[in-house]
């Protein structure tokens, strides 16, 4: 196993998007997905916090509001471990392109903001596969927050970071929480060489940049669309 600090040697390709809620990462990932499908690539998609075996426990913890910074970190690592083993590594072995909506950096920023030791979180996820490409969607806080409030009726307890005691008002707590997460993300961009995308630029412009970077990587890895492989 190669781990997070060194490139993997699977035939497939792992692309991840990171960023706060409302940064536009999922929109861009959807566009990237349709484009790659059209180009004939075999794709596999996985998102944060979605392991069938684990997510019920996470949900129970959130509903009962019994998650602490530590158990929040650990249950998400458990979820990630299960998905890595089942939804990320096998398609990579099969030579597919795996798209991941959020990856370890979501944990590295959120958990650290919640007070978990940064070294500890990195150790916990040291088994993760290093992505071939990791995009970080940077947006001004106001843009992200406006997007979230436009599309949603209310904020959930942990989503708003209410467990941190930053404010009794969910909206205000959310703002402070997101600001701190963005600070952490900015540190990670340098530490891990994430590719920064300006999430406040026009959608088409962002997508053009992403496709350019992805194409370069595809060329570098000599990946071929599945449809053309047999021809």
């Amino acid at each position: 196993m190669s781990g997070l600090r060194s490139p993997h040697d699977y035939p497939g390709m792992l692309i991840v998007v990171e960023g706060v809620d409302g940064s536009g990462k999922s929109t861009q990932l959807d566009l990237m997905r349709s484009w790659l499908i059209q180009e004939g690539y075999d794709l596999f998609f996985t998102e944060w916090n979605s392991s069938k075996l684990v997510k019920k426990t996470t949900k129970l913890g959130k509903t009962k509001q019994i998650l602490t910074p530590l158990t929040f970190a650990l249950i998400h690592a458990t979820d990630f471990s299960d998905r890595l083993e089942r939804a990320i590594i096998p398609p990579l072995q099969a030579g597919m392109i795996v798209l991941a909506d959020r990856y370890v950096w979501t944990a590295f920023s959120r958990d650290v903001v919640r007070g978990v030791d940064p070294e500890y979180v990195r150790d916990l996820y040291s088994f993760a596969v290093q992505p071939d490409l990791a995009f970080y969607f940077r947006v001004p806080l106001q843009t992200a927050v406006q997007r979230i409030f436009r599309g949603r009726a209310g904020l959930k307890y942990y989503e708003a970071g209410m467990d941190l005691g930053l404010s009794r008002d969910p909206a205000e707590s959310f703002l402070k929480f997101q600001a701190r997460i963005m600070e952490e993300y900015d540190k990670l961009v340098n530490e891990y060489g994430l590719v920064v995308v300006h999430g406040d630029h026009p959608i088409e412009k962002q997508q053009r940049r992403i496709r350019k970077v992805v194409l370069e990587k595809i060329k570098e890895k000599k990946m071929r669309p599945a449809g053309r492989k047999k021809a």
Partner: peptide, 20 residues
Amino acid sequence: IGRRTLALFYATDLADRLER
């Protein structure tokens, strides 16, 4: 379930018992 995932699940279990 894989062994690493189980080890992490048990870690969550212990953390919850320790803290609460």
